[in-house]
Design a protein around this nucleic acid. Structure first.
Length: 416
RNA sequence: GUGAGUGUAGCUCAAUGGUCAGAGCACUGGACUGUGGCUCCAGGUGUUGGGGGUUCGAGUCCCCUCACUCACCCCA
């Protein structure tokens, strides 16, 4: 084979593309009902947009971005995530002057230069949503409620909702310091990765999976105990809203998000059937980011859902119907072929999905193809039918068949 | 970036170091001269991922390389 798609980058084609459409259409419908409207940011930005939002020292920025110079020497990056672009757009276009809150959703490809594995690709698709301008945790609950309805509607089951609060810039420094104090005496026993995390982002030691590290973090300070009064109130009311909405959730104090911009609420939706990369959606609050981008002080919260992971769960559940043509028209020679073509044209103008058999193939093979594509009806036109001015029809599901004159085709369609 | 596993027909996979590398699925035709699913018959493509080595002989063993997969890191 001469050419293949790049590593970690995949084509999407039927029948999978039907599932993609189903998910995207459902998302648009559900998100709209929560007042989230589509925003289409570009997929490339100046590198600085991502460096400033995601964080200089994060892995994404340090080693995973597709970055290049354009012809004028500007530093350009293919977006590794969506939030940075949405915030840039929000600030650049002064959308904060519109009635608050402003709520947006987006969908499209993201790019990260990573080693591919199950549920992780170099080009991958996310559907995300962002809400600007609300401090109250009621919006946090609305976001989870939106996710729950979305996943229910597309047919995903057995999902776990995990939440946490990682504090704000008032209380997080205290917690960070407590963690550093706690682990400083255990440094030698930690795995090499955790020793590195200790330097870069001590919070990340908490979600290490190495058995020894799991033991060592018993008795480690819990973030919730260090939250300031405002953060506690926010987290408590968040949970009250979730209970009101009957959204089952677990508090996972070890869930710390990797991106620097998160504050207070973080959450993740996971599914056990996925493999190591088990999050189908994740997000959180980022109350400082708009300001850092030069906008007014504006609280915000958002999430991103991984399309490929959703699709793979739906494929395994086998619950998606693949659409099928309404009518398959088989024909046997030049004259009947012409008749078939013109009937097909008329019916397609009415919006019906019509497949044509081709007279070069035997009727048997045309019938077989009609069956393979799960056509509802087969029309058969040959020499006799042309002479008599009528065609034979057959309904494949129950084998019923009959004849109908060419002029009566419309009524057969509308009666069935 | 690190580690492990796998590369044989369009797809899923067989083949103890030994003759000509096979089967199922799928596709086309026929049995059924114009009626799908079931059954039977017929029809064919492989530089065994690529390169080198060991051997009388390599799909099989060794080395290199590439690709894919899974896991770590990280993250949707």
């Amino acid at each position: 084979m001469k050419y293949s798609a790049l590593k970690g980058i995949h084509d999407i084609f039927p029948p999978d593309s039907f599932i993609w459409q189903h998910v995207e259409n459902t998302a648009k419908e559900i998100f709209s009902s929560y007042g989230f409207h589509e925003l289409r940011p570009p997929i490339i930005e100046s590198t600085e947009v991502f460096v400033r939002s995601i964080g200089e020292s994060s892995d994404i920025v340090e080693k995973e971005m597709y970055t290049f110079n354009d012809k004028a020497g500007r530093r350009i990056t293919l977006r590794p995530e969506g939030t940075a672009s949405v915030v840039r757009c929000y600030v650049e276009n002064h959308l904060y002057n519109l009635p608050s809150p402003q709520k947006f959703f987006y969908s499209g490809p993201m790019f990260r230069y990573e080693r591919p594995q199950a549920g992780r690709f170099r080009q991958f698709y996310q559907i995300g949503a962002e809400a600007f301008g609300v401090f109250d945790s009621i919006i946090d609950a609305e976001i989870l409620s939106l996710l729950k309805l979305f996943f229910e509607r597309i047919g995903l089951k057995e999902l776990n909702f995990q939440i946490n609060s990682i504090g704000c810039d008032v209380c997080r420094p205290d917690y960070r310091k407590a963690l550093i104090d706690f682990f400083s005496s255990k440094l030698e026993a930690l795995c090499p990765d955790c020793r590195r995390r200790y330097e870069i982002n001590p919070l990340r030691i908490l979600d290490c999976k190495v058995p020894d590290c799991i033991k060592l973090k018993e008795g480690a300070p819990v973030v919730i105990k260090y939250l300031c009064k405002e953060c506690i109130e926010h987290f408590d009311s968040f949970q009250a809203y979730l209970n009101l909405l009957n959204i089952p959730f677990n508090i996972n104090p070890n869930m710390v998000r990797g991106l620097d911009y998160y504050t207070r609420t973080t959450f993740e939706v996971t599914c056990e059937h996925l493999g190591a990369q088990n999050a189908v959606a994740a997000g959180g609050r980022y109350d400082k980011l708009v300001e850092e981008f030069g906008g007014p002080k504006t609280p915000a919260i958002g999430f991103a859902a991984g399309m490929e992971r959703i699709i793979s769960l739906l494929k395994n559940s086998g619950s998606i119907k693949i659409p099928a043509p309404r009518i398959f028209i088989a024909s046997l020679d030049f004259e009947s072929g012409k008749k078939a073509l013109s009937i097909a044209n008329n019916l397609r103008e009415k919006g019906l999905w019509i497949e044509l058999g081709y007279p070069g193939n035997s009727l048997k093979s045309q019938m077989r193809r009609a069956d393979r594509v799960s056509a509802e009806y087969v029309f058969i036109i040959g020499e006799d039918e042309i002479k008599l001015g009528k065609l034979k029809w057959k309904k494949l599901s129950d084998k019923s068949q009959g004849e109908i004159s060419f002029s009566e085709i419309d009524s057969l369609i509308s009666n069935n």
